[in-house]
């Protein structure tokens, strides 16, 4: 019985390690997805001069990975909210529980105060700034990814084993 318990403990610790590693991978994927989405948004805004709600819909439909954020913001805007409020609300709901850090979310949140409020060239500047912030986060996350995934997986296995030995 004790052996079964110990095995379960090790398995659970391994799973936690894998989950943590998977979250690091998810962060890289989400940041890459957001950078792509910002590129699309910039095209719709700067070149297409598409109304913001419609641009958000289009980006949402084109990006399966992060599309739900944009679709929700568009839905809230069509319900009568101004972009700043719609974006903030959609972003809080979407980012909660994802692997993104507070530092990753901050430039996105700041976008709510400026997007849609100035001429196209100014919008391009804001979007490029956000992209540069996301890119810095993505670059950092991707560089550390192999090391961190190995670390979390090893920590899961070793932590589980140590705990099982201590309790056994």
């Amino acid at each position: 019985m004790k052996l079964v318990g110990a095995l379960l403990l090790v398995a659970a610790a391994c799973a936690i390690g894998h989950l943590q590693a998977a979250r690091r991978e998810q962060r890289v994927r989400l940041l890459a997805g957001l950078i792509g989405a910002m590129d699309l948004l910039e095209s719709h805004i700067v070149y297409g001069r598409t109304l913001l709600a419609e641009a958000l819909w289009r980006v949402g439909e084109q990006r399966a990975d992060v599309g739900s954020l944009f679709l929700e913001a568009a839905r809230l805007m069509e319900g009568g909210l101004a972009f700043s409020k719609a974006w903030r609300k959609a972003l809080s709901a979407w980012s909660w529980g994802t692997a993104l850090t507070a530092g990753d979310v901050r430039p996105l949140r700041d976008l709510g105060d400026v997007l849609g409020r100035s001429p196209a060239d100014d919008q391009a500047r804001h979007l490029r700034w956000v992209k540069s912030q996301l890119h810095a986060g993505w670059h950092d996350a991707r560089e550390k990814l192999p090391e961190l995934t190995r670390l979390y997986r090893a920590l899961g296995v070793c932590g589980g084993l140590i705990l099982a030995l201590l309790l056994y």
Partner: peptide
């Protein structure tokens, strides 16, 4: 004023510049 500008431009100043 901000709310009215958002409503008048549909939060898309760049589209009506």
């Amino acid at each position: 004023i901000h709310e009215l500008l958002d409503a008048a431009t549909r939060s898309s100043v760049y589209a009506v510049q």
